[in-house]
């Protein structure tokens, strides 16, 4: 059985656990990000993450130690940019490509020891034991905060003006969301690659919204879709020797098409 085969390798079972937790966390955060029209922020952050990863490899310091603070700080910066009435989207696009350029330059300075391909498109080989622990901690924090503040995040997403008028500190939840998103991106980036990680935030939410019309159902379906797509993609990548990140995203894409069709049929029928 192919699953038994995967589990017999310790680095693969580690990657399986990390991927599962990242998929779950990212899908839940994604619902709120997509509804707040913050999809671009996830994309921007992953590019910034790549830049930081490149610099970390040149300076030969621990990738997490540099990437984590840089991405967290950038998330707050990107959030402020996106709230601007005009020019916010262009600013994010510029920041993304600048970070990408810096990363590529850094990697080329680093020379043959660094694998550009793994940085861009991920590698399950890069999930070390310490990475696994960090991602376990990050996912636990994300899931716990998400469950505790579920209703507050919902209310400040649905109608921030009402939420503020009833005394809710909306900025707090926006900042929390930005913080959790950057944590998930940094942890997930090593495995999925910085070019593909943002799809893990966006695809589950968009697919779920095709078939579900209440917030709770969208959240549950997004989480389920994300986890199932991850497992299928992971196994397929092992069986067909495809890059893991790419196969997972392709499965997400298939689910998206499928759920769009289901939603369309449900509306007509």
């Amino acid at each position: 059985m192919i699953i038994g085969e995967i589990l017999s390798y310790s680095f693969l079972s580690r990657a399986l656990i990390v991927g599962f937790l990242i998929s779950l966390s990212s899908s839940l955060l994604g619902v709120s990000l997509v509804l707040r029209r913050y999809s671009m922020i996830g994309d921007g952050l992953s590019h910034v993450g790549f830049g930081a990863l490149g610099i970390a490899s040149v300076m030969s310091i621990s990738p997490m130690a540099l990437t984590l603070p840089v991405v967290v700080v950038s998330s707050f910066l990107l959030l402020r940019l996106s709230e601007r009435k005009s020019g916010g989207d262009s600013a994010i696009a510029l920041l993304s490509s600048s970070a990408l350029a810096i990363g590529v330059a850094a990697v080329s300075i680093g020379g043959v020891n660094t694998d550009l391909n793994a940085f861009l498109f991920g590698s399950i080989l890069s999930v070390s034991r310490s990475d696994a622990w960090i991602s376990l901690a990050v996912s636990a924090v994300t899931l716990f905060s998400y469950l505790v503040f579920y209703h507050q995040i919902y209310a400040s997403t649905f109608d921030p003006v009402f939420a503020k008028a009833t005394g809710m500190k909306c900025e707090r939840y926006t900042n929390l969301l930005a913080l959790l998103t950057s944590l998930v991106i940094v942890v997930g980036m090593r495995m999925l690659g910085s070019m593909l990680i943002s799809s893990l935030l966006i695809f589950p939410a968009l697919s779920a919204m095709k078939v579900a019309k209440t917030y709770l159902k969208v959240s549950i379906i997004a989480a389920a879709e994300s986890v199932v797509a991850f497992f299928i993609g992971f196994i397929a990548s092992y069986a067909l020797s495809l890059p893991t990140g790419a196969s997972i995203v392709i499965v997400h894409m298939c689910f998206y098409v499928l759920m769009t069709a289901i939603g369309w049929i449900a509306r007509k029928g």
């Binding site: 509804l35 209703h151 507050q152 919902y154 209310a155 997403t157 649905f158 109608d159 003006v161 009402f162 939420a163 008028a165 009833t166 809710m168 919204m209 579900a212 019309k213 209440t214 917030y215 709770l216 159902k217 969208v218």
Partner: peptide, 25 residues
């Protein structure tokens, strides 16, 4: 407070009960 309608997204997935409950936050 009943805000002006324009500020609420038209495609937001939410049930009536979810919205009403959020008023007591």
């Amino acid at each position: 407070y009943l805000p002006q309608k324009s500020q609420i997204q038209k495609d937001f997935p939410s049930s009536v009960r979810e919205i009403v409950l959020s008023g007591c936050l």
